[in-house]
Design a protein around this nucleic acid. Structure first.
Lengths: 204, 204
DNA sequence: CCTAATTTGCTTACATCGTAAGCTTACGTT
DNA sequence: AACGTAAGCTTACGATGTAAGCAAATTAGG
C-alpha cells in the first residue's frame, strides 16, 4: 500500500557510527559505471571500492536495483544544476535539451541505465520545471508545454542512446572519432530544431 | 579482423540432424520475453521452453548476448513487414513512425532490449528504406532525409521507453488503463506532428 | 551391412552473482 | 560497568552463463 522505500530510522543517537553514507555509495556506484560500465557494477565491487564488505551496503540500500535507481536520480539532479533559465520559451526548451544531453554524454555508460530506469516523478518535474515556468509566462497552455518538454526529453534520450550504443560490427573506438561526434552533434541540432519549431509554430 | 559472427558450416550433409533451428530459438526467446520479461530469459529457461538442455543452444548461438541481438533484428524485421509505402514523404515518415511504434507496443517488455541493443546496420537501413526512397522522388536531399527519419526513429523509441517503463511509485497495472493509453497516444501524435512539420517546413 | 566421420544434443562442473541469516564491533545511555 | 542499538562482517545458498568433454544420430565410404 504505502510506498515508503527507505527504512527511515527517524531518530539518530546511539549505535555504531556509520562509516558509509548513502551518498557515498551512490557516488561510488556512478564512478564504477563511468569507469567500467553497468555490468561491472556488482555489489562486491562496489563494496571493495568503498573499503567495505558487499553485505554492508544493504544497511543503506535494500538491493542492487535501489542503487541503480539512486544513481538515476543523482544524475538527473546533476543535469538540473547545469540548467540556465534565461530566454524565451523556445530558447529554454533547447537549453533544457542541451543540459540534459550534456549530462548524458558526460556519462555515456550510464545512458542505458537512464533509458531503462525512469527517474522518480519529483526529480523529473524539477528537471523540466524551468521550461514549464517560461511557457506559463508566455501564455502557452500547460498541456501543450508539457507535451513539448517531454517530447524533447524523449528525443534527447533516444538520440543519446543511438550515439552511445555501439552498433554491431563497429569498433568501440569508432564512436569517439571527431567525425562521429560532429555527425551526432549536427543530427542532434537539426532534430531538436525541427521539434522546437514544430511546437512553436504548429502546422494545422 | 574479419567480423563473421556465425560459424557458417557452409556445407550441410552428414551428422546428427538438428532438432533445433536458430529461428526456433529466437522465436522462443521472444515468447519468453513477451510473457515474463527480459530477466526471465535465462539459457535454462529458453532450453526448457524448447525441450532441450541449456547447453544445446550454444550449438546455434555463441552466447546469451547473441540471442538478444537476434531478437532485436527479428523484431525490426517484423516492423518492416507492417510498413506501407504510400503517400508523400511526410506521410511516409509518419507511417514509418506508426509501424515502428506498433511493433514496440506489441512487445512492451522487449522495448528496453531495443533501446540498449542497436539493430544491425543492414536491418536498420531496410527499415527506413521506404522513407528514404519517397524523399528521393520528392527531391529532398539525402542527408536531410536521413536526419529526419533517424530523428523520428529516436523519438519513437524514446517515447515507447517512457510509456512502457513503470515510473517508481506507480502500480504496474496503472500503465494499462485506457486513460494512460489515450494520454500517450495524444502525446505521441503531437510530438510526431511537431517533428514532421519541423522537418518539412524548416525554420531556416 | 559395417565402420568412420561428423554434427547435434547432454552431463557435469565452475566462477560469479545477489542476497538471507546471524554474529561482532563500536558507539551512546544508564 | 552493563546494556541497547546500529553498522559492518562472515558464511552460506540458489541461480546464472558457459567451458569441457561425452553420447547419440545421421551420412559417406568400403
Amino acid at each position: 500500500m504505502a510506498t515508503t522505500g527507505e527504512p527511515r530510522p527517524a531518530r539518530r543517537s546511539s549505535g555504531r557510527p556509520p562509516q558509509l553514507s548513502r551518498d557515498d555509495i551512490v557516488s561510488a556506484a556512478l564512478a564504477v559505471i563511468d569507469a567500467d560500465g553497468l555490468e561491472a557494477l556488482t555489489m562486491r565491487r562496489l563494496g571493495a571500492e568503498l573499503g567495505v564488505a558487499a553485505m554492508s551496503l544493504y544497511r543503506h540500500l535494500p538491493n542492487r536495483e535501489a542503487v541503480l535507481a539512486a544513481v538515476v536520480n543523482h544524475l538527473a539532479t546533476e543535469a538540473i544544476t547545469d540548467l540556465d533559465p534565461g530566454g524565451s520559451w523556445a530558447e529554454s526548451l533547447t537549453a533544457f535539451a542541451t543540459a540534459y544531453r550534456q549530462m548524458l554524454l558526460s556519462h555515456p555508460r550510464a545512458v542505458p541505465l537512464l533509458a531503462t530506469h525512469p527517474m522518480d516523478v519529483h526529480t523529473g518535474l524539477a528537471l523540466i520545471q524551468v521550461v514549464l515556468d517560461r511557457a506559463d509566462t508566455e501564455g502557452v497552455p500547460r498541456a501543450r508545454a508539457l507535451t513539448a518538454v517531454q517530447s524533447v526529453a524523449v528525443f534527447v534520450l533516444g538520440h543519446a542512446l543511438a550515439q552511445v550504443g555501439t552498433p554491431p560490427g563497429t569498433s568501440a573506438t569508432a564512436v569517439e572519432t571527431p567525425e562521429a561526434t560532429e555527425y551526432y552533434d549536427r543530427w542532434f541540432a537539426e532534430g531538436l530544431a525541427a521539434m522546437v519549431t514544430g511546437f512553436v509554430r504548429p502546422a494545422v
